[in-house]
Amino acid sequence: MGTWGSGNFDSDTAADHLSVLTARLVREVEDAMGGDPVELEPDEYWGVAVPCNLEVLHVLASKGWVGVELPAAATVEAWKATFLAVWDARIDGLEPAPGHKEQRRTVLERTFDQLAEAIRAR
């Protein structure tokens, strides 16, 4: 097909690029979820980076561009259960400021849920 429009993401090459980019983001989350749960703790790198990856994937999914490859919604829901179990087990030990724990957990839930919903809608 080649090029089908004048937009930055309206070509086979752009679709290939998005496929590589989204596969990397998904692979990083898969690796983090399958690794040592300590790495998912709220003050660890993947405890911060996983939600960031999911947010970026959601933005890309919402654009409807060709080449955005996403996991199944059920996979995202399983990730949510794993991630929030670690969050719930460790957040109190970090002595969060009043209200932070509840507010942040709401954001985390929304992050997983909005990606799962976007996947279902595709």
Rank of each mutant, 00 (worst) to 15 (best):
W65V: 03
R24W: 13
A73P: 01
S6W: 06
E30H: 10
H17Q: 15
R110I: 00
E102M: 00
L40K: 08
D43K: 00
S11K: 09
A116M: 04
V66T: 09
Q114W: 02
L25V: 03
A61Q: 07
L70I: 11
E55G: 10
W46A: 12
P51I: 02
P71Y: 05
R27G: 15
T3M: 10
R120F: 06
D12T: 05
P51H: 04
A32D: 12
V56A: 14
K63C: 14
V38C: 00
T106H: 01
K101C: 02
A15L: 04
C52S: 11
V38G: 01
R24Q: 15
W65C: 07
L70Y: 07
G47F: 05
A118M: 02
W4C: 02
G7F: 11
A89Q: 12
S6E: 11
E117G: 06
R27M: 14
F83N: 04
L60T: 05
A32Y: 08
R104M: 00
E77D: 13
T75Y: 01
E55Q: 10
A61D: 02
P51S: 07
G93D: 11
T3I: 12
D88V: 11
F83Q: 06
A61I: 07
L94M: 03
I91Y: 02
N53T: 07
G5K: 07
M33L: 15
A15Y: 05
L40M: 05
A116N: 04
R27L: 15
A61C: 14
R104T: 01
T75D: 02
E95N: 13
A78F: 01
T75G: 00
M33I: 12
V59N: 03
L70S: 14
A118H: 03
S6V: 10
V26Q: 15
E102G: 00
D12P: 02
V26T: 15
D16P: 00
A116I: 05
L40V: 11
H100L: 12
E117M: 06
W4L: 04
R120N: 11
N8S: 12
H17Y: 13
L18H: 08
P37W: 10
T75V: 08
P96F: 01
